[in-house]
Design a protein around this nucleic acid. Structure first.
Lengths: 110, 110
DNA sequence: TGCGCCTATGTCATATCTGACATAGAATGA
DNA sequence: TCATTCTATGTCAGATATGACATAGGCGCA
């Protein structure tokens, strides 16, 4: 898990140069990052299941394709607020989002 | 539920003048606001259970008493990121936060 | 009454996020 | 090969959130 997490973190632009820095993150920081990664994966899964392109979804969200890409990459420039709004816009309930933030994209919609 | 929600929204400074405006909110907006209200209530409950004052907790969070007050009031100026970080700092797990965001402060910690 | 202690609310400079744009990469089909 | 479609990444001006501060309100206690 940690290896994969670290790779995804680096890809997302997080300041996680090596294992030392990685381990330097506090528990809260790690929990927050894991939460965002789970939501990002859930967002992508939901969008794809609905057959929407990033561009189409972006216009519905009142945003841009590039930002949707960053959302799904859990880029450090995207907030939880934006991820939540995006998921809600795709029809997710609070329960759905709660499940996603715990289990990521593994679990299917209820 | 809606009456109480509206009162709390107005208190929090949300632009919810009357029932018409209230009903004018989109589903996504309502879900986001409800989520924040639930997290705010859960945060207060957790902090009080730990016997911390807003000031003490604020310093641990690297923030200020006034911002903690706004968090617990679900003020429109507080982000989900801040609420999540605060809950994580109080020892909540992702599962805990997921429960809180769905059930508010009703349910006790696991 | 006055005095601590805790919480609420308003303001503001600064930090961070956001949408938009440009551009590049990847994949598909002709 | 070229064109088309979709996605990824970098940048930036403008929007929003943030910590800090001041100050007010509430509540218990002497």
């Amino acid at each position: 898990m940690e290896k994969q997490l670290q790779r995804r973190l680096e890809k997302g632009g997080w300041a996680v140069g090596d294992a030392h820095d990685f381990l330097g993150l506090s528990d809260e920081e790690i929990r927050l990052i894991e939460t965002k990664l789970a939501l990002a994966a859930g967002l992508r899964q939901r969008r794809e299941k609905l057959g929407l392109t990033q561009s189409v979804f972006a216009s519905r969200l009142g945003s841009s394709q590039s930002r949707v890409a960053k959302m799904e990459a859990a880029d450090r420039s995207v907030s939880l607020d934006l991820l939540f709004r995006a998921l809600f816009l795709l029809g997710a309930s609070r329960q759905d989002v709660a499940r996603i933030m715990v289990h990521g994209a593994r679990r299917r919609a209820a």
